[in-house]
Design a protein around this nucleic acid. Structure first.
Lengths: 204, 204
DNA sequence: GTCTATACGGTGATAGAC
DNA sequence: GTCTATCACCGTATAGAC
C-alpha cells in the first residue's frame, strides 16, 4: 500500500492552495486552479471529487499548520513560563512569515462559515478541551493569575503576533505607503516589541 | 433638490449591508439581498446598476465608520496623550461592538482585492499622508519616541482592540466553548486590559 | 416604481474517446 | 490518467408589461 501521492495530485494541491488561500472558497474558480496546475478541469474532478472536497483539503492543512504546535508549546510542562512565551511568539511569527496569507484565509473562511470549525475538530480528532486545560491548569497556575487573566494573555499574544499580517494591505498602504521593505522591517521588529509588552504584563 | 433616499433604497441598502458583510462580495447573491429586502432582483438593478456598485456602497460605508474618527482622535492636538489613547480604545471598542462583523468584512475584502483600497482613498477624498503625519508629528513627538516606535504603538492598540472580534468564531469555540455570554464578558473587560498593557508601555 | 419573464455568460460536474 | 466536448444549473443583468 503505497500512500505516496502522485505528482499530479501534488501539483493540483499546490495550485489549489495558491488559489483558495488568495480568493477564498467563493472567489476561487476550478478553471483557475486547473490553469495554475497546468491541467484541465476534468482532471481536478478525477483526483478530488468536488470543489468542496478540494477546498477542505486546503483548509484542513492550513488549520493544521497552526494549532498542533500552539498546543504543544503552551502545554509543555517542562519549560519555564517565561521561555515558553518567548518560544511561542518566535515560533508563530516564523510560521506566519512562511505562510503570510494563511491567517486571513482561515479567519475569512471561519467568519463566513463558522460551522466548519466544529467539523474540523471532529474530523481531525483534535480536542478543544485541551486548550481550556492549558489555559486553566498550566498558564494560570504557573503565572498565579486567574483563568480569565490567562485568557486575556493568550489572546493578547496571538493578537499582537497575527494582526499585522491579517491587516497587511491596510497597514502597508496607510502606514508604510506601499513600501514592502518597510513593512518587512517592521515585522522583523515585532518579536522584541511583543516580548517587551507581554513581559511587563507578566512580571510585575 | 431633495437628496433624501426613498424608503425602498434604504431598505435595499440595509439588506445589502447584512448580506455583503456576512458573505463577502463573492459569497453574496443578489437574490438573497432581494429576499432580505422583500423585493425582487430587478428592483435591485433599477436602484443600483450592478452588484459591484451596490457592493461599493456598502464597502465604502463600512470603511467610513472607522477611519475618520480614528484620525480625528489621534490627531487632535488639544487632548493629553494619555487621555487620547484612552478615548481611542474606548471609542473603537464601542464602534466595533455596535458593528461586530465589519472589521472581518473589511479585512477579508481587502485581502482578496487590495486594489480597492487605493480606489477608496481616491474616491472618498481622504488623504493617507494624514496618518503618517499623526504618527510622526503628533504621537512620536508627544511621547518622545521614534517614528517606528509610534507605528508599533498604533498597531498594538488596534491589534489588541480589533483582533478578538475578527477571530471571534475561533475564540468562541476553543476558549469559551461556544458560550456567547462568556465571550461578551471577556470583551467587556478588554478596555481595561488594553489600557493597562498600553499604559505600562508608554509610561516607563 | 415594481413586477414577471427571459436572455446570456459562466461554473461545477460528467461522458466518453484515447 | 488525461484530454475534449458537453450538460445542467445558477447568477447577473435586461426587456417589457402594468
Amino acid at each position: 500500500m503505497t500512500n505516496s501521492k502522485s505528482d499530479t495530485e501534488k501539483v493540483i494541491l499546490e495550485a489549489a492552495r495558491k488559489v483558495f488561500i488568495r480568493k477564498g472558497l467563493d472567489g476561487a474558480r476550478m478553471q483557475e486552479i486547473a490553469d495554475e496546475a497546468g491541467i484541465n478541469k476534468a482532471l481536478l474532478h478525477y483526483y478530488f471529487r468536488s470543489k468542496e472536497k478540494l477546498f477542505k483539503m486546503v483548509f484542513r492543512e492550513a488549520m493544521g499548520k497552526f494549532f498542533p504546535s500552539m498546543l504543544m508549546i503552551l502545554g509543555s510542562q517542562d519549560i519555564a513560563i517565561e521561555k515558553k512565551v518567548e518560544v511561542f511568539i518566535e515560533h508563530y511569527i516564523r510560521i506566519i512569515q512562511e505562510n503570510p496569507f494563511i491567517p486571513s484565509f482561515i479567519i475569512g473562511e471561519l467568519n463566513k462559515n463558522p460551522g466548519q470549525l466544529t467539523e474540523f475538530f471532529v474530523e481531525s480528532g483534535m480536542d478543544t478541551s485541551r486548550v481550556s486545560f492549558i489555559i486553566e491548569e498550566v498558564l494560570a497556575k504557573e503565572l498565579k493569575i486567574s483563568t480569565q487573566q490567562a485568557r486575556h494573555l493568550v489572546v493578547n499574544i496571538i493578537a499582537l503576533s497575527v494582526f499585522p499580517f491579517v491587516s497587511r494591505p491596510l497597514l502597508e498602504k496607510i502606514i508604510f505607503h506601499s513600501n514592502k521593505d518597510e513593512f518587512d522591517q517592521f515585522v522583523s521588529e515585532r518579536k522584541s516589541v511583543i516580548m517587551n509588552l507581554i513581559g511587563t504584563s507578566i512580571y510585575r
